[in-house]
């Protein structure tokens, strides 16, 4: 089948594959540098999240009588799913694994579309829901590669507000957890109500100014917002890592293809030369 292609055709394919390879190799490097930056961001967020968790935990542990709507479970009439996807493709299974997970969860847990709503981060997730008539109550498209807290503050606080206003009774977040540059894991986190506060028993007793109830009032929404931000940072790092891996395998594939094309190009060229020589010799023999 390959013998049908002319030398010029093969040459053309080789050139275009080489160009594609250059592009994917460049994209791989861009993603790699974005990934290390995103990893850095995720790291610099850790002190904040640890501290806020510690304070929330110590208040919750020392005061069992303190109650707050964000800490207590209530009957779930509507579930909010916050999904973190990318705006563009070329990231391997990054988007599809999240979306598949979302669809499966919805099929398993819900009978009608009144029982859930989606908060979509990323164009891919938004488009997916639009196409399948999944209700989307909020969305964010065009999140920066290195998001700052200020960028997502509005989305986070509005989402938390939905819970406070009892528009949703629980909030679950789906995102890709960054395990390493080559491994990302679809992760499900029950964000609200806040139930799993680890108490590491540091046991610091605090004075509260003005009192615990009011502090919780301020602190818990901030805590929830910071959790959302943390998941987004984690997701971003995964996105860049996934994009890097996808681009690397594209580059590798292009390289393989170029090798094969080169082989058949050389083979054909040789065949053409051999044929020409045979013809010349034949011609000479006919003259003698």
């Amino acid at each position: 089948m390959k013998s049908l292609a002319s030398l010029r055709d093969i040459k053309g394919r080789m050139d275009s594959t080489k160009k594609t390879k250059q592009i994917t190799a460049a994209m791989e490097m861009v993603s790699a540098s974005k990934m290390s930056k995103a990893e850095q961001n995720a790291k610099s967020y850790v002190p904040y999240s640890e501290k806020i968790q510690e304070v929330v935990a110590s208040i919750a542990a020392n005061n069992t009588d303190v109650s707050h709507p964000m800490l207590s479970k209530r009957e779930v009439k509507k579930t909010g799913y916050l999904i973190v996807t990318a705006d563009k493709g070329l990231v391997g299974a990054y988007n599809s694994s999240i979306l598949r997970h979302l669809q499966r969860t919805i099929q398993e847990k819900h009978q009608s579309s009144d029982e859930y709503t989606v908060i979509a981060v990323g164009r891919k997730g938004y488009d997916f829901c639009q196409k399948r008539d999944i209700p989307v109550s909020k969305s964010m498209i065009g999140l920066a590669d290195q998001p700052k807290f200020a960028d997502i503050k509005e989305l986070a606080s509005e989402t938390v507000q939905m819970f406070i206003d009892e528009e949703i009774d629980e909030l679950i977040i789906f995102y890709n957890h960054y395990v390493s540059a080559i491994s990302q894991q679809v992760t499900t986190k029950n964000l609200l109500p806040i139930t799993d506060i680890e108490t590491n028993g540091s046991g610091s007793q605090y004075e509260y100014e003005p009192d615990q109830q009011q502090i919780l009032e301020v602190l818990l929404p901030q805590y929830a917002e910071s959790l959302i931000f943390g998941a987004l940072l984690d997701g971003k790092a995964s996105e860049h890592a996934a994009s890097m891996t996808a681009m690397r395998s594209a580059t590798d594939n292009a390289e393989d293809l170029i090798g094969e094309l080169e082989l058949s190009y050389n083979r054909q060229r040789q065949a053409a030369i051999t044929q020409e020589i045979t013809e010349i010799i034949g011609g000479v023999a006919a003259l003698e």
């Binding site: 304070v55 208040i59 610091s204 007793q205 605090y206 004075e207 509260y208 100014e209 003005p210 009011q214 502090i215 301020v218 602190l219």
Partner: peptide, 14 residues
């Protein structure tokens, strides 16, 4: 207004 000097008792305040 709050002024914190060294040796303050543990405190949490928004």
């Amino acid at each position: 207004e709050l002024g914190i000097l060294p040796g303050h008792i543990p405190l949490v305040a928004p």
